[in-house]
Nucleic acid binder design. Structure first.
Lengths: 342, 342
DNA sequence: CCTTCCAAGCTAATCGTTTAGCTGTATTCT
DNA sequence: AGAATACAGCTAAACGATTAGCTTGGAAGG
């Protein structure tokens, strides 16, 4: 690889002059400029970003640490992040920790060593994880989940609203007996969705039936198992299952169909997050969309503000609104109660 | 950030000694070792990988340039790559070019500047793109697609076999009138699948009906439109559509259902690639699985061999076998022809 | 004509590592 | 005892950029 030294030799100028023409950091006469540019072309020279980073103490790199890239929740976010990074001349490193906390730890270390300019951390829920992050001294923003009392840079959605919206929609369709399949309540988003479900029910003048709330996590397996459990144990069946995530809804629908129960005719199912699969699922899923691309985008934009430090030092929390997506897994059933479709 | 200099001052040893204890590159007495380690702990010191890379001329970084991370074909591959990179102490940079050739060009430049140790290039089909890659002087391996006469490092699957397998399966189910929805034949994989379809038909003693082959690309939109076209124009209907990709099959099924045609009862549909959505699609899709995670994994492993240069300088091409996945979108219909289900 | 000023371009220090080669002490051997 | 050897640990030169501050020579001013 050619270096500035090579260029300076060939163009017969000093290294400082080469640097000046490359970075337009000082006036250089047209003749020398041309000699330098010719030499650059001739040697197919590209500046060494490693050397530059060492001197400048900035690598122009941001990294995202993501729990599981195979989870369809993430690709759109990753794209949003990469797009903003690229548009600002930054490189983007993806760290997939595959739900392995040791690997999380390790990646943080690596990012310190590699001198990343900033980090986007998807799904940091626990204070101890946050402490690890703080310890790195790197600039960062949290994405999606956050620890309980966290009040610094964060981008997420209004999870409470997701379930309030769901319940409101279900009520408007005439559903009154609504089961809830919760996520892991250790996790901020699952907690908020569960709270939103309760407040939504209250807003609609409906009662939460404790016999119809099931705890689990965001996986389709959890939805599947809780459905089987409900089918086997529950004394009464709900008219609709409100699931904490689309994957949970997928699992529920699968279990329902295995038992010969039709969706939505016998029991309806409502999702949450608008997984890219949901539109064309066995039964197209009515759900709540999360603006994933936008979240990724805003996270990196916020990170840049933090890096530049221009913004007032006040940390910012950006909370995006979800939006209802009506498809086929829930259907008007008001007539059973003599209601009007309004 | 603390540096080696700080450590050497606090531990009262030379910088060389600090380096020696960190890298275990020379014997250091237990006393000094301990003094150094204490200082490292005290200052929460982490070596600066940028400085190290500059000196060592190696960044311990590989990059993947991928056409579209939102395409569900990629996340599993990306995970495979990241896993291998991580296991070997390398960092992984993801470059999503979003189907933008200008961005491809730009990312190549960035990777040269950042001194990536190697590149995995998913979906390089054209010689001119390859020339750009060669010009960087970086080590690389091609993944999935490749230009026509390319014979260097490559990891992909046997695309010809995918469609041969499909046709064989369809024939065994008793289908004889098979439509083919091809991908963009500029692309190596689409070309190979098309060839496999033809040779498969021939092997089964079936004739390719030109009126039932439609050209398009790998998108669901293409499948949708070609189905509409077929429904509107074709003089005879096939018993089954063999699609060049699962997305094409999705689009076809959507169009078929819109026209009140049942899948598989009226017309069956066969996919290709085993998209993660396919298992739970409106009608679970019979398709051919591509070992995506494995492909990503092997690509980076091959890249490491190339980087180390230990391997004989002979370039290697790894071609993985696909495998049939039987689900519900195709069904035994031999009885129509008086055949036995064997 | 001498001084002052200016601008283009250069010299050299620096960023934080690695490592070749040296120094100085202790050990071993004759 | 003196020479040879071994070896822990040190000094200093890289790696390839950036940039403060210096040099140099010509223009302007008195």
């Amino acid at each position: 690889m050619a270096t500035m030294k090579d260029i300076s030799r060939i163009a017969d100028v000093s290294i400082a002059t080469v640097s000046a023409v490359i970075n337009h950091s000082a006036f250089v006469s047209p003749e020398l400029t041309e000699r330098v540019n010719n030499a650059i072309r001739e040697l197919n020279y590209r500046p060494n970003a490693v050397a530059r980073s060492l001197k400048m103490k900035s690598t122009k790199t941001v990294a995202a640490i993501v729990t599981d890239i195979e989870n369809p929740y993430y690709p759109a976010m990753v794209k949003g992040m990469d797009d903003v990074a690229f548009a600002n001349g930054f490189s983007f490193m993806l760290c997939n920790i595959a739900n392995d906390s040791e690997r999380f730890r390790k990646y943080l270390e690596v990012m310190v060593e590699k001198q990343a300019d900033g980090l986007v951390l998807a799904n940091v829920s626990r204070d101890e994880e946050l402490a690890l992050v703080e310890r790195t001294g790197l600039k960062y923003v949290l994405l999606n989940r956050k620890p309980p009392a966290y009040d610094k840079n964060y981008v997420g959605i209004n999870n409470t609203l997701t379930t309030e919206l769901s319940v409101k929609h279900l009520a408007s369709l005439g559903y009154r007996s609504i089961a809830y399949f919760a996520g892991n309540l250790q996790i901020s988003t699952a907690r908020e969705r569960w709270e939103g479900f309760q407040s939504g029910m209250h807003q609609q003048g409906l009662k939460v039936d404790e016999a119809l709330v099931f705890h689990g996590n965001y996986t389709s397996q959890s939805g599947y198992e809780n459905t089987k459990k409900m089918l086997a144990e529950a004394r009464r069946m709900p008219e609709v299952i409100c699931a904490a995530s689309d994957l949970v809804a997928f699992g529920a629908i699968k279990a329902l169909r295995e038992s010969g129960i039709r969706v939505p005719e016998d029991i309806a199912v409502m999702g949450n997050d608008n997984n890219p699969f949901s539109e064309n699922f066995i039964v197209p899923l009515t759900t709540v969309d999360h603006p994933k691309y936008e979240m990724g985008k805003l996270a990196v934009e916020l990170l840049f503000k933090e890096i530049e430090g221009t913004e007032q030092k006040l940390a910012r929390q950006i909370v995006l609104p979800p939006s209802l997506v009506v498809r086929e897994s829930c259907r008007w059933r008001g007539e059973l109660y003599g209601l009007n479709s309004s």
